Structure formats: C-alpha cells, structure tokens
Amino acid sequence: MKKSKLLATIGGLGVAALSVFLISADHIDAPAVAGTTADITDFYAFEGESSNNFVFVANVQGLLLPGQPTDQAEFDETVLLEFNIDVDNDLKEDLVIQAIKRGDSMYFFGPSAPAMQGLESTIATSTRRSVQISTKDDVQIAEQDGMKFFAGPRDDPFFFDFNKYNEVLAGTATSFDDPGTDTFAGTNVLSVVVEFPKSMLPAGTAGVNPFAPTTPMYNVWVEAKRKQ
C-alpha cells in the first residue's frame, strides 16, 4: 500500500450538522501562504440536493483572473487537500477525505480513519477514486461508489467589500453601501468538491448542537498539506 508523507500548511474551520453549517474565509489575509498553491480561500460544508448527502467544498488560490487556469496545471501535485471530520466532539479528526492532483486528474481517498492525527498525514491508495480536472470549457463530474467529485475553476462565490472593511478597521468609514462592492467579483478560485452519503459517517454527537439540540453534529475543517 503506497503512502506519502505530508505536512500541514493552513486550514479552514467549519461545523456541519444535517442542515447547519459554518464557514471560515481566508481571502488574501494569510501572509504565510497568500498567493501560493496551498492558499485556502473558503471551506463550505452543507447538505446536498439530496437530504441523504453531505457536500464538502474547498476553494484555493483566489483572485485568479478570468480565463485562468488555461489548463490543468494550476493545481499543485505537492499539495494535499484534506477534509477532516470529527464525529465525537473531541476536536480531533476521526475520518478524513483526501484529494491530490496527479496528471490531469484529481484523486480522492476516504472517508477513512487517518493513519495519524494532527499536522502530518499519509495517503493510503486503497480507496482511490478520481475525476478529470475541469477547464472553463470542459466541466467534468465523476460519480463513483455513491459519491460525486469535481475539481476545477469556478467563479468565486464569496461576497466581500474589502475596501470598506479596511475603512472600518481604520476608523474612516462614514457610511455603508447597499449592497456594497464585491471585491472578488469576476475572479475565479480552484474548487475541489466531494458529495457523499451521510451513511458513510458514523452517527455524529447528539445534544451538543447549539442550533438544533436534537440534530447530531459533526465538526469539520479543511487543511492544505504540502509534501516534504
């Protein structure tokens, strides 16, 4: 069984219940990785069109100009994206779904128990699935083993008025525009999307969901890990 060792670089946080999600954004404000192939812009976790499924989305490499990338070379083969799932509310990953580029495809592994918890990861290829990386003119979605996969450029969905935000921080804002100016309008991100049946996860922790106490909750977050 082939394994690769990687180290974490940056992560985004979230919480997913059956119908509840939180998002952590990291647009252009992470100096250690800003502008690199490991720069996470957003992480989304939500219920799929089918209420039996979860959908995880990791967006990386923000502020790509329209028309970029022109081919599949923009994803970095040395960067692993790892969706971490905590099912017992101890804030440690119990299961992971991993994605990494090889050639013109994105390969997915899991959900499976991690070989180790924390900053270091290994990839076991026993559950390998893949999708061809999309371009703006050729969108590919793969369906395998009840799961769906996508990887490629998408219009950045995150709305944020960065200039007004800076004015607020500086104390110079005198008014607010409605709806404001979307700093990220017209720019792309690289998206990695996986949809999978909820039945692939053990029951989440009950009684700790602040939004719906009777709804089991999962803590989920994403990391970008670079091969060393």
Rank of each mutant, 00 (worst) to 15 (best):
G35Q: 05
L91W: 12
I97G: 03
T174K: 03
Q98W: 03
Q68R: 10
P202F: 00
Y107E: 15
G118R: 06
P111Q: 01
S134K: 04
V60Q: 00
F83G: 04
E93W: 02
T122P: 09
S130I: 05
E223Q: 14
V192T: 07
I123G: 01
A142D: 06
N89V: 10
P216D: 05
T187N: 10
T78H: 11
V220S: 03
L6A: 06
V96Q: 09
F150Y: 11
F149L: 08
Y165F: 14
D161V: 02
G67K: 05
S199A: 05
Q117C: 11
S130K: 08
Q61W: 09
F46Q: 13
M106R: 07
T174R: 05
A170I: 09
F83N: 03
L201G: 01
A73N: 13
F150W: 07
A38P: 00
T215K: 10
L81A: 06
T135Q: 07
E143Q: 13
D161F: 00
Y218V: 08
G11K: 04
F176V: 12
P153T: 07
G180E: 00
M217N: 11
F159A: 05
Q132I: 10
S175K: 08
E49W: 10
K148D: 11
L201C: 00
E49C: 11
L13A: 15
V189G: 05
G180D: 02
R129H: 14
V131Q: 00
A32S: 14
A142Y: 04
S199C: 03
F54Q: 05
L22D: 15
A212E: 12
T183G: 09
D86W: 04
N59R: 10
K2W: 02
D137F: 07
D178Y: 11
G171E: 06
A8C: 13
D182P: 02
D137E: 10
S4D: 13
Q132P: 10
D145L: 11
S134G: 04
N84A: 11
R129Q: 15
A30F: 04
T36V: 00
V57W: 03
L95C: 11
V96G: 07
A170T: 14
D39N: 00
F56M: 02
A185E: 11
V208W: 01
E47N: 15
Q117S: 15
P66S: 05
E223C: 12
N59F: 06
E77C: 05
N163H: 14
P197Y: 05
F108S: 06
A34K: 08
T174E: 02
L190P: 01
K101R: 13
Q61C: 05
D156E: 08
I23P: 07
F83V: 10
P210A: 08
R226C: 04
V168W: 13
V33G: 01
M200Y: 14
A151I: 04
L18Y: 12
M1S: 10
D177M: 10
M106A: 14
F160R: 03
G180T: 02
S51T: 15
S19C: 06
S105G: 12
F160H: 08
L190E: 03
D90S: 06
D137G: 08
E167D: 09
A30N: 06
G103R: 04
S121Q: 11
I97T: 07
F83R: 02
L7T: 13
F56I: 02
D178Q: 08
K92V: 14
A142H: 06
